Simulated assay, not measured.
Amino acid sequence: MNSNHVPLTSSEIGNLWMAYQEKTMLLRFLEYFLEHVENEEIQQILKSTYDSSEQIVESIKNIFQQEGAVIPLGFTVNDVNKGVPKLFDYLYEPMFLHLISKIEASLFALYSTMSYRKDIRQLFKQLTANAQEMYDQCAQFLLDKGVLVRPPFMTMPKEISFVKDKNYLSGFNLLREKRSLNAIEISLIHHAIEANLTGMQLMIGFAQVANDTKVKEYFVEGMKLSKEVETTLGEYLRQDYIEPPATHAGKATNSTVAPFSDKLMMYITNLLGSFSIGSNALGGAFSLRSDLLVTMARLTQKILPFVKDGGEIMIKHGWMEEPPQVEDRKKLTKT
């Protein structure tokens, strides 16, 4: 080995491993979508995303090979079934990628700040740029089609003001009316509802086609949980006479034939659950109304056991690939 060669750190290995899992999962979805896509513009978005994702997977493979590390299994062609009916209808493909781009942009930007070797920093910088490009393409397409609902407009602020009353933080005072949501709180609520609308249709579709009974029941639970998040947070907007986001597109069809393995469907459900926990934590951290903060925390308390249960199902069936592990030096202390 070159004396100037800097080995990968534990964080770099872990994040490359995570990126490989997510990207190989995405490739399987894209293969399925490309088989059924009819709209030419959507096809171009899917193809460009597939090409860039495939290139990233090969780059990660090369890094692991150069470091003498085993290449993860991730998700393969065995996890997607060709020639089956469409599971999702009109415009779901860009809606799905719109959601995935939000997850990727957040994850890969974080991974880039946890990387120290120059080539790894550059790789995650490219991954972040790819995710942002995917978001731009999908958002613009969905806006042009009238499918993506913008957050509510508001009057532009004309002066600077400071909070003078501690009741600004309260949402539980029964003797006075709650203040209206501020722009930051509205944006976080809108973001959470938008993600759960797409996720709910994914859960409905998965519940229809899952092979294992317990897995099917798990997706039904995920469907109900997404609905609860959407309706609970939507009520905060309605109290301020703001209509929550909704869309007529991207519904699950009535197909009962699985396009994906139960393993793949469980993985992405776990990923979405983890993303939802992070979103609620962010929403709680930046919400200044105490009732909204408590609601975000309560929803998180319901999502956490859901994600844990999913992990246990994956372990039971041998679907959870184990991340790279450090040497267990604790054994050296045992006699």
Rank of each mutant, 00 (worst) to 15 (best):
L107G: 00
S170P: 00
P245M: 04
T231K: 02
K158S: 10
H36L: 13
L87E: 09
Q43S: 15
E58A: 13
V326F: 10
M296W: 15
E230R: 08
E177R: 11
I189L: 06
F29R: 00
A192T: 06
G68E: 10
F275K: 12
L123E: 02
L202Q: 10
H36I: 07
I100R: 11
L73V: 15
V70I: 15
E230M: 10
L332W: 08
Y111H: 09
T253V: 09
K334H: 14
R238I: 10
I71K: 07
E67W: 03
W17E: 01
G146H: 01
T269S: 13
E40G: 00
K82L: 14
D240H: 07
Y111N: 02
L87Q: 12
H317Q: 12
V307F: 06
E177H: 08
Y218D: 06
R150N: 15
D119A: 02
E31Y: 13
K214Y: 09
L272K: 01
P72V: 07
S106R: 15
L142H: 06
L202N: 06
L332D: 13
T113R: 14
Q137S: 11
P245T: 03
P152V: 01
L271M: 09
R179D: 05
E67M: 03
K86V: 10
N270T: 12
S180V: 14
D119E: 11
Q122M: 12
F260S: 12
V294K: 11
A207P: 03
V209N: 00
F206A: 11
Q301Y: 04
M154R: 15
A258E: 00
H5S: 08
F206V: 07
I60Y: 02
L264Y: 00
K331F: 13
G222T: 05
D79C: 01
V147P: 01
G310C: 01
Y90S: 13
I71M: 05
